Simulated assay, not measured.
Amino acid sequence: MANDDQREPVKTASFGATMKAVFWSFFGVRKRRDYEHDAANLNPIHVIVGGLIGVALFIGILVFVVRMVVAKS
């Protein structure tokens, strides 16, 4: 039986790995194994910042596409 002192420290994922997880979450494409790994290793602050960056990029792309379509009309 493992003692609490003998457990390996949990590594937190890098910001890049967090952005990758947020990117795939926007599409809803995550394997259960990857989801469980992310839930154990991602830093919540990184997830929030990554989500805000993802939303800003998404809105920016939508605005750009709409302006291009309206300009062509």
Rank of each mutant, 00 (worst) to 15 (best):
F27P: 05
W24V: 00
A2L: 15
H46R: 03
V55I: 11
L57N: 03
V10S: 12
T12M: 02
F64Q: 00
R33Q: 14
N41M: 12
A13L: 13
I45R: 05
T12H: 05
F23D: 08
M68I: 07
K11R: 14
H46I: 05
M1K: 15
G60Y: 10
N3E: 12
R33N: 12
N43R: 10
G16W: 11
A39I: 13
V65D: 05
V10L: 14
R33F: 01
V29G: 02
I45V: 09
M1Q: 14
V22H: 09
K20M: 06
R67C: 09
R7H: 08
K20T: 07
I45C: 00
P44T: 11
F58E: 06
V10Q: 12
V63G: 09
V63R: 11
S14L: 03
P44K: 10
F23P: 00
V29L: 13
F27N: 03
V55E: 06
M19F: 04
A17P: 00
N41S: 14
V10A: 13
K11L: 13
A71L: 06
S14G: 06
G51A: 02
T12P: 00
I45P: 00
I53K: 03
I48V: 10
N3R: 14
N41H: 15
E8S: 13
F15V: 05
E36D: 12
V55L: 11
A13D: 10
N43G: 02
T18W: 04
E36H: 08
V66F: 15
P9Y: 12
F15P: 01
G51D: 00
I59M: 10
V49I: 10
R30L: 14
V69C: 03
D4I: 15
H37K: 09
R7I: 10
V65W: 11
R32P: 11
R32E: 11
S73Y: 07
R67D: 08
F58C: 08
T12I: 01
R32Y: 04
S14R: 04
A39S: 14
A39K: 15
A40V: 04
M1D: 14
N3G: 07
E36R: 13
P9V: 06
H37R: 10
M68R: 09
V22A: 04
G28D: 08
D38K: 00
G16F: 08
T12L: 03
E36W: 04
L57Q: 04
V63F: 15
I61N: 02
I45H: 06
A71Q: 11
E36G: 00
G16K: 13
R30G: 02
T12V: 05
K72A: 12
M1G: 15
